[in-house]
């Protein structure tokens, strides 16, 4: 549906370059809904989980499925907010794995955001509030 005279890379006075948009692969997510806090059922109270210590979060990388992995893991992305250090780039390149495209990174990041919700919701752990039986 491009107009006559609109060429890649050319920006005529009457045309504007369209913004890129990726629909995403099947299985990706684009919506993260906030689940209500403290579902007050006996079942949710019984399933209180103390999170297993994960790798130091601040330095971890984010894999495509949103999980945290050691820094420099092939195919994983540095966390947003942490500038890529020179060594990171070298490691990524020497492993034959180029830094990801924006779309892949954003998909990984969305998965990461969604995973922040797993486990207890509302209060970081029910154990702070009360002692579940058994």
């Amino acid at each position: 549906m491009s107009e006559k005279g609109e060429h890649e890379g050319n920006r005529g006075p009457a045309t504007t370059r369209r913004r890129a948009l990726m629909l995403g692969a099947t299985g990706a997510v684009a919506v993260v809904s906030i689940r209500p806090a403290l579902a007050q059922t006996a079942a949710s109270v019984a399933h209180c989980e103390i999170p297993v210590p994960d790798p130091g979060r601040a330095g971890s990388y984010i894999a495509a499925d949103g999980s945290l992995v050691p820094p420099g893991t092939a195919g994983a992305f540095p966390p947003v907010g942490k500038p890529l250090k020179g060594e990171d780039v070298k490691v990524a390149l020497s492993g034959g794995q180029l830094p990801g495209t924006t779309a892949d990174q954003s998909r990984a990041y969305t998965n990461y955001i969604r995973r922040l919700q797993s486990g207890t919701s509302g209060f970081t752990c029910f154990a702070s509030l009360q002692m579940p039986r058994g």
């Binding site: 906030i34 806090a37 509302g122």
Partner: peptide
């Protein structure tokens, strides 16, 4: 998102 997980009354 982290703070919604750390809030008991965000939804209420």
């Amino acid at each position: 998102v982290r703070l919604t997980q750390a809030s008991t009354n965000f939804v209420a």
